[in-house]
Every structure is written in C-alpha cells, then in structure tokens.
Computed example of a mutant assay.
Amino acid sequence: MLWLKAFHILVVTSWFAGLFYLPRIYVNLAQDHDTATRDTLLGMARRLYRFMAPLAILTLLTGLGLFLYYGIGKGQGWMHAKLALVLSLFAFHGVCGRFLRQFQQGVNTRSHIFFRWFNEFPVIVLLLVLILVVVKPF
C-alpha cells in the first residue's frame, strides 16, 4: 500500500503543477497580445489541459484505492472535509476547461485581474488539505 500512496503523492503533485500553471497562462491570455503570442499561449494552455486530465483521473483512482484500503470510520471528520476540498479541485479543473474553451472561441469576458485571483484557489485548497491530513484537527 505504500507504493500506491507514493504514486498517489506523485500524481497529485503533478496535477497540482497544472492547476497552478494553467490559470497563470489565462492571466496572460486575458491581457492584450498580438495574434502570434495569443496562439502560442492557447497552444500551451491546450497541451497543459490535455496533460492534466489523465493526472486528475489517476489522482482520483489512487485516492479511491487508498480510501478503500484504509477506510473511513468514526472520528475521521478531517477526511470528510478533505474529500469536500478534493471535489472542489475537480470542479476547479472543470472550470479551467470551460475557460479554455472560451479563450479558444474568443469569447472570454474576464480580466487578467480575475484570473490572478482565480489562480489562488488551488493554493488555498492545498494548504487546507495539507493541514487536514497532517494535523487531523477533528
């Protein structure tokens, strides 16, 4: 089971790299750029999103395997909170895909400032999940 846990940490870390970087690309896309720069940024965003999708699936599968192995019992409220935060990350991933489609279609209406704030969400969730997993406050 330690091998599964190690692989889970690897895919979570890799998925988070994408969750951190993709909104940064959106910050740049939301600013005015020439066509060549915009096309380059869109290509980067598209490739990164495609790279992130299998990592999200592997995160889900390895996490489910760990959950089934260790189970969840009485007195593990921290796990419920962690799972809620993880679900919010999957929703964030989906919203990132929606924003990518909007950029590809040229219909984005959000500013680079919005995407700067949007970019902070996975950082906050990671901090909270780490606290829950390590400290297990409830």
Results as ranks from 00 to 15, higher is better:
residue 34 D to C: 14
residue 81 A to Q: 15
residue 73 G to H: 08
residue 134 V to H: 08
residue 79 M to T: 04
residue 96 C to Y: 01
residue 130 L to R: 06
residue 24 R to Q: 06
residue 46 R to K: 07
residue 92 F to Q: 07
residue 78 W to T: 02
residue 89 L to R: 02
residue 127 L to G: 06
residue 44 M to N: 10
residue 76 Q to L: 05
residue 27 V to C: 11
residue 19 L to F: 08
residue 114 F to H: 13
residue 7 F to Q: 04
residue 62 T to C: 13
residue 74 K to P: 01
residue 133 V to P: 08
residue 35 T to W: 07
residue 45 A to R: 12
residue 7 F to E: 00
residue 126 L to V: 13
residue 99 F to C: 01
residue 33 H to M: 09
residue 49 Y to E: 00
residue 51 F to I: 12
residue 73 G to T: 04
residue 67 F to D: 00
residue 10 L to C: 04
residue 66 L to A: 02
residue 118 F to K: 09
residue 25 I to P: 00
residue 25 I to Q: 08
residue 85 L to V: 08
residue 37 T to A: 13
residue 128 L to I: 05
residue 36 A to K: 04
residue 38 R to Y: 11
residue 99 F to T: 00
residue 54 P to F: 00
residue 39 D to Y: 08
residue 38 R to I: 10
residue 58 L to Y: 03
residue 129 V to H: 04
residue 110 R to D: 04
residue 110 R to N: 01
residue 29 L to G: 06
residue 114 F to V: 14
residue 61 L to S: 05
residue 18 G to N: 15
residue 6 A to C: 03
residue 114 F to S: 10
residue 66 L to N: 01
residue 40 T to D: 09
residue 9 I to M: 12
residue 66 L to C: 07
residue 100 L to H: 02
residue 65 G to S: 08
residue 135 V to R: 11
residue 15 W to A: 06
residue 9 I to L: 14
residue 56 A to F: 03
residue 98 R to C: 11
residue 41 L to K: 10
residue 67 F to H: 11
residue 106 G to L: 10
residue 44 M to W: 12
residue 97 G to F: 07
residue 122 P to S: 00
residue 54 P to V: 14
residue 48 L to P: 00
residue 27 V to L: 14
residue 117 W to T: 02
residue 138 F to N: 10
residue 41 L to Y: 07
residue 116 R to Q: 13
residue 100 L to K: 13
residue 67 F to Y: 15
residue 22 L to K: 01
residue 96 C to P: 00
residue 19 L to R: 03
residue 124 I to K: 01
residue 32 D to A: 07
residue 16 F to M: 12
residue 67 F to Q: 05
residue 19 L to K: 02
residue 25 I to Y: 05
residue 122 P to H: 01
residue 24 R to Y: 03
residue 92 F to W: 05
residue 73 G to L: 09
residue 17 A to T: 12
residue 136 K to T: 09
residue 98 R to G: 13
residue 103 F to A: 07
residue 6 A to W: 09
residue 12 V to I: 07
residue 125 V to M: 00
residue 92 F to L: 12
residue 63 G to Q: 15
residue 124 I to F: 03
residue 49 Y to C: 02
residue 66 L to E: 04
residue 128 L to G: 12
residue 53 A to V: 09
residue 61 L to W: 03
residue 85 L to M: 09
residue 136 K to R: 15
residue 37 T to C: 13
residue 14 S to Q: 10
residue 15 W to Y: 04
